[in-house]
Amino acid sequence: MVAKGTLSYLWVLLKLNMKAALALRAAYAVRTIFNIGNHAIYLFLWVVIFKTIPSIGGWRMEHILIAYGLAILTWGLLSFFAAGLRTLPRQIDEGSLDVYLTNPRPLLMNIALGSTQYAGPAEIIFGLVVLTIAGHLTSVSIPLLIFLGLCAFIVFASLVLAYGSLGFWLKDYHASAEEMYFNFFIMATRPEAVFHNWMGWVIVTIMPIAFMTHIPLRALIDDNIYALGLTLFGTTLSAITAYAVFRTGLKRYESGNRFGVHG
């Protein structure tokens, strides 16, 4: 009963998000063009790089396209289903969580979808187009790709949640957080071989971007079952860790030390 109520609440939230995006059609359309342009420029950079250097750590253009397609898809999914996670630091600063804390529905759901700002359908489509251009679309790989895309989304959402939750400790952190998310995105599209030695550990532990692109790529291109399991494991672990960081931060919010005396 409770679960059903929450699901229907989620549905109303999603509808409202769509409606809010449509309410600002013109601005939204311009933004979409800008966002796609922005991704296209970046892809172009890799074309230039691979013109100069044929292969980096075994990665060719095809790898970059898949990694980048996955990353854009992820970014789009996040913008559509959990845009509020990105603004978590600002929501904390503004005390918006107060309103959600007195709402009977799950806090994280309200944070993620309770305030619209971005909308991602265009980016989702662009990501799929890039993945299509990259090839590897077979009857086997399409379901696999959907699965890996979902995992990548969960990993990225977890990263955003975990690093955004630092806003419970750091004041005025919103701008820096956005910078982090952007850099995670960039790092996830770098060839895996770049992260060697201790860096390899960083990208599977405190900054688990490897589970977003690098490891799924092995599953997809090299048909590596082991990599598939690893992706699933990493995704789960990222989600659990991020939630734990968020809960810890929330404790601080509830203690009021975050704000001090306001009267």
Binding site: R190, A193, F195
Partner: peptide, 9 residues
Amino acid sequence: VFIEFWRLI
């Protein structure tokens, strides 16, 4: 990461 990128290349 950048340093490693260029060392790799």
